[in-house]
Design a protein around this nucleic acid. Structure first.
Lengths: 270, 270
DNA sequence: CAGTACACCGTACTACGTACAGAGTAATTC
DNA sequence: GAATTACTCTGTACGTAGTACGGTGTACTG
């Protein structure tokens, strides 16, 4: 069983950042290669790693398993990738590169930001592991750059300063990622404990009843049971998403709609 | 480098939620103890674990190290705690229990929610590891309950339904935690790579210049350099916090101030 | 006093990332 | 053509983690 466990924020990029960048951008080797031909390439390694992560989560991505899938011994991977941290960078940038990017030019800013949010949500739905990789030092690869450019353009021309544009985007993306992490953690916990929420509550209820001073937590009891009932109606993740996104957009509206300067500024939706 | 918790394939009921709850609430043993006296107690174990985590991060909390600090052999800990996951639950609930809780009754809702946000921010500043523990299944201990009750009461009487109160609180706390996680990740990466942001950028810049098609990412280049300059002014984490919290509150204002029903409903601040 | 439940400990297993040294291969140099 | 050299691939092994298992001695119950 595994209950609350540190969320695995892999990645450290202990190696040389310049080397990592060259890998991300697939900079070809300078001197002609001498020894035996390579039997694999980086893309194959990354593809297998992504496949494992998609299927069984980030924990399933071990150097040993990736190697096995490729028919080589674990240490062979180190001729393609300096270490696991860099492999995770490559996975993430690849996922970024393959995201769908809707062109919303000319549409009201709410539509544009909603599209950005939903593109990211779709990313995390297709690749839940992507939400759990630390982005403390983002992989500055082609995927990341394309993503950043695309998403910033949704905030351009709204009368925000450059620093505000970056802050607003960070704010939006942080919300989406936090939501995706919650979902990933819920999945993880369900899998690790081999117990769904219903069973977990059923196991807890009798002890809680015995231990909890009734009346000590009046608001919590009232709200918690209402929220619990709502969640049992398979309501919860979708609800948190919709509720949160509306708040995020309303929060940005107070900033954006207050600014003069753009024909694209529309009235707050709904 | 971070390690993963092995997932026990068999042994389904090894980690019993009821047992965890009893630990959290310090339910005393039923039958009189027979064998040798205990030389420790749970609180000592938890205190040492928290001390390690505060000082050197969650990675420093290993059963071996905790045991060593207590002058016992690692396996001895298992008489006090079923496993590491439960120890983390206990640490988290203890941190929750010790949080400061300001009484803001009667004050405008923005002040009250700001206080809640700042209490949580202070928690994560004192115990950065607390932000990185999965709350997929929250520890339903005395700390968690007190925290939930306190924070919900800040949202009571504003004309929100119970489900909305829960959603609004989750939204606020998710923001605070996401911020704290970013900070923790930044710290972690700085420590793991033994390289500060300045050095990292310096190492990346030459390769980026060589690899990046100038003009391919116009918005990103403009905004990125503006944001980068702002961050270099030691501006960034504080800025993200202030910017984000204002958006969060403005977003909630659109919900709360639209509701009739409470004298406490004040005009949007700032 | 015998029996027993329990605290504590030593050993060992599995899984991880990866350091290191060796073997074989193909391009370069003579 | 032969020697050199750079490179790929491999086998072994180290250190760290959580914790299963079985043994030993203790202090209470009958």
């Amino acid at each position: 069983m595994r209950q609350n466990v540190p969320v695995p924020l892999d990645r450290s990029s202990a190696g040389d950042p310049a080397r990592t960048l060259e890998l991300l951008w697939r900079v070809p080797a300078g001197t002609p290669r001498r020894g035996p031909r390579k039997r694999l390439d980086i893309d194959a390694v990354v593809a297998v790693a992504i496949g494992l992560a998609d299927a069984d989560g980030l924990d399933a991505v071990t150097m040993r398993r990736v190697a096995q899938r490729l028919g080589v011994v674990p240490m062979t991977l180190y001729t393609y990738v300096p270490g696991k941290a860099e492999l995770l960078d490559l996975m993430l940038d690849t996922a970024y590169l393959r995201m769908s990017r809707t062109d919303t030019a000319g549409r009201p800013w709410r539509d544009r930001l909603t599209a950005v949010a939903e593109e990211n949500r779709a990313l995390f739905e297709a690749h839940p592991w992507a939400a759990t990789i630390s982005t403390g030092r983002p992989p500055l690869g082609p995927g990341m750059m394309a993503k950043y450019e695309h998403e910033l353009s949704a905030l351009d021309g709204l009368g925000l300063h450059d620093v505000e544009m970056d802050a607003a985007l960070t704010f939006l993306l942080t919300f989406v990622q936090a939501n995706a992490r919650s979902a990933a953690e819920a999945r993880q916990v369900r899998q690790d404990s081999a117990m769904d929420d219903e069973q977990w509550w059923a196991a807890n209820a009798p002890v809680l009843d015995r231990v909890l001073d009734p009346g000590a937590y009046p608001t919590a009891a009232r709200v918690g049971s209402a929220a619990g009932a709502a969640q049992r109606a398979a309501y919860s993740p979708e609800h948190a998403w919709e509720f949160g996104l509306r708040r995020v957009l309303d929060g940005l509206a107070a900033l954006i709609d207050g600014r003069a300067g753009s024909v694209e500024t529309g009235p707050g939706a709904r």
